[in-house]
Amino acid sequence: MAESTALTDAVDRLAGRLRSLPQRRLSAGAAAQGRELADWLARRAQELESPGAVPHEMPDDGPFTVGDQLAVAGHDLAAALDAVGSAAAADTVGEALDRVSRTARAIG
């Protein structure tokens, strides 16, 4: 699905940027913004995979893990969207891409 590929590409770019940031920038808010996005992506994936179940929260494993957490959550959501393949999935992809873009701009 082209939309999920666009999502994984965008997530991978942002995850790479977060991995390359110095501790000072991560601690100044970039890690928190990335973690917030990763948590949102993970929750959407869990809702698609297990409707009605209470989603798990993304753990705070420190600023240096946020890039990896973001990548995993984004790829999980893309896989869940591919499995569902409905109009609702297209809406979720659009919202996810918007959130990735806003977070990327906020991080700089």
Rank of each mutant, 00 (worst) to 15 (best):
G74H: 08
A45S: 13
L81F: 03
V72R: 09
H75F: 01
V66F: 01
D60N: 14
A31W: 06
A83K: 13
H56R: 11
Q69Y: 05
A30H: 06
R44M: 03
G74L: 03
V66T: 11
E57T: 12
G85C: 02
E36A: 13
A78Q: 08
E57A: 05
M58P: 09
F64N: 14
A71T: 12
D60S: 06
D39H: 13
R44I: 02
L81S: 05
A31G: 03
S50I: 13
L37V: 13
D60P: 11
L41W: 06
V84N: 07
L41M: 07
E49F: 01
E49Y: 06
H56Y: 01
A71Q: 15
V84T: 13
E49D: 15
T65R: 10
L70K: 10
E57N: 04
V66Q: 02
E49M: 11
D76C: 04
A73H: 08
R35A: 00
E57V: 07
R44F: 01
F64K: 15
A83T: 12
D60E: 09
P59A: 00
A53E: 12
A73E: 09
D39N: 15
A31S: 10
P55R: 00
V66C: 02
P55K: 01
W40K: 08
R43F: 00
A73W: 10
P63I: 04
A38G: 12
P55V: 00
F64V: 11
E57L: 11
D76I: 02
M58G: 02
L70E: 11
G74V: 07
E49C: 05
D61Y: 12
R43D: 04
A78H: 08
A78T: 10
M58E: 12
V84H: 09
Q69H: 14
G62L: 10
V72C: 01
E36T: 15
R35T: 01
A38H: 10
G29P: 14
D60V: 03
A53H: 15
L48N: 11
G29L: 04
V66R: 03
A78I: 10
